[in-house]
Design a protein around this nucleic acid. Structure first.
Lengths: 201, 201
DNA sequence: TGGTTATCCGGAAACTCTTTCCGGAACTAT
DNA sequence: ATAGTTCCGGAAAGAGTTTCCGGATAACCA
């Protein structure tokens, strides 16, 4: 591998920070992509995204060499947002409520972002790291809510954060023509089970 | 039913049966597609399929006007095979065993055919009919195994065939880097629960 | 501030894959 | 055998993605 991957490794003299227009364009692209993905779908033509972002196609491919890189970036950004929501919830609500609310938010993320399920099941190796990323970011977030809830006795957890996360992710993956809140119902059942200490064992 | 794959509906004047070379080519294409899909993936270029089938591209698009039609046909054919396996199992084994064995077969289908999950979550309206088809074909098949098992007391079913089918389908949808038989384990749990009458209620 | 240089932008062109089209071959029915 | 369809194959058109590079622009330094 010839090391031209990124130029962060120029420690010896001039780190020269990224140009501001570049950073700004990346931001615009991610924002535009998020919008277009949820409108037209993840298979929307690149042109639609670059137009909305007010940028040329070359710019898109400069920052996201493959189409999958853009999709990955958008999803990871949403995962981050989901993780970042945890502390505020923990501070504002009682442990049990915070947990339920956060799970609801996660459910909404999985259920509404069809691109997520599509990427996950596409078979494209480019997305192989996504479950890991989700686990790494959301695992601690969930745990930080699960632990107080358990400690306060509101929840008798016999389910690991990982199992819970995956179960929710799978149950809420949207299927065509599915009863609207089939997934939400399943998760509610799960949470209920958690509360009464009868969850999966 | 959107099955314009074959022209069986020409009842009114000149039934003129489908040309044998046409039928043969359709067969070759389905066979080739099944192989290529499980090798290269559902996104494999059409050329690869037509080459393996020993057929021109035009022939492919004559019988399957859209790429999704071919994918749909392959999946439906596998669903049919799964449904057709039920009677033999029912005849050869005791009700409980027949049920478990069939579910295992269904699990294998969902787990190994990544194209199935991909199609389901692609968001392409072309695949909207697939869950319905699955339900329509596999629902009765499963019921025909569930009913005797319940009657003989080997299973105390509190779960409808539909719920069971969907639950299995979702749990077994393969995710990248997933523990190899995570899905199978979940299903085993489910079946076990079914047997002891403690399944989802 | 002005010069130097690495980085970035934009869009045309090259590519890849899908889908259409049609002349001629092959099959069915009579 | 002949007429009448249906079907085949592959060339070409379309659609979308990815590459490429001359010209612009921001960062750094004196």
């Amino acid at each position: 591998m010839s090391d031209n991957t990124a130029d962060f490794n120029r420690r010896e003299r001039a780190p020269r920070r990224m140009r501001t227009d570049a950073r700004r364009n990346i931001e615009s692209l991610l924002e535009a992509a998020k919008t277009v993905f949820s409108t037209t779908g993840v298979d929307a033509p690149a042109k639609e995204i670059t137009d909305l972002a007010g940028v040329g196609v070359g710019t898109l491919y400069r920052h996201f060499p493959q189409r999958s890189d853009l999709i990955k970036a958008v999803i990871e950004r949403e995962i981050d947002a989901c993780a970042d929501a945890a502390p505020a919830l923990a501070a504002a609500h009682e442990p049990g409520v915070a947990l339920a609310t956060w799970l609801d938010r996660f459910t909404a993320f999985v259920a509404t972002k069809r691109g997520f399920a599509a990427a996950l099941h596409s078979g494209d190796p480019a997305f192989d790291g996504l479950p890991g990323y989700l686990m790494q970011k959301l695992g601690p977030a969930l745990e930080s809510l699960l632990e107080p809830a358990t400690a306060s006795g509101e929840v008798q957890a016999r389910t690991s954060a990982q199992d819970l996360l995956y179960a929710v992710a799978k149950l809420c993956a949207p299927m065509p023509n599915e009863e609207p809140d089939y997934g939400r119902r399943m998760v509610a059942l799960l949470v209920n089970g958690l509360r009464s200490g009868e969850s999966a064992h």
